[in-house]
Amino acid sequence: MVRIKNRYLVVNYLYPHGNGQSNNKDLPGALEFHQPTPDDFHEGRLITAIRNGVTELFGDYGLGMVSTSLKVNYHSTATSTSIIRCPQKHFEMVWAALTFMTRLPKPIDVPVVIKVVRVSGTIRKAEEDVIRRAKELVLRAKTGDSRPGDDQILRDVVKTVAKRRENEVLLGDEEEEAEESESD
């Protein structure tokens, strides 16, 4: 059997001007832009907004291409996270439509910046990523202000340093290596 291939976009909603509802001034710095989405913004409204955006950018052709498998798999207003399913070939259109969105649709009308944080081929990986990010955010709120992915950067640095050291050791026994490469 051939499967229909999809892409799953993990999406975060960021509110540079606050979400227009709660006025907690004493939020931790890490959560300044990560505020809960208004509850009125439900799945139906999200789908309509995406459809309108795609139509605006790519016209009827784009909408036709995209709408075959457009669906919201997961939508959480409390964490401002959604997983959106779209066809594998045309996920860029959906992404662009999300990028061009500056406000939540009409009755809510709050300025928003939508950030696609992960593009995945399977829903499982997308879900795992959502959980990982939520945990990270909680940790940041508790401990202080480091950016998401900073620990990833640190890990990479450690990895590169280790690799470089390895290379130096190899350069140390240069002759051996030369022999090896010749025999190859």
Binding site: P16, H17, E92, M93, W95, A96, L98, T99, T102, P111, V113, K115, V116, V117
Partner: peptide, 17 residues
């Protein structure tokens, strides 16, 4: 304004579109 900036990955996607 703040609303005009997008994340690097979004910009890359725009470029690719």
């Amino acid at each position: 304004s703040v609303l005009g900036v997008r994340a690097p990955s979004d910009v890359i996607n725009l470029a690719s579109v």
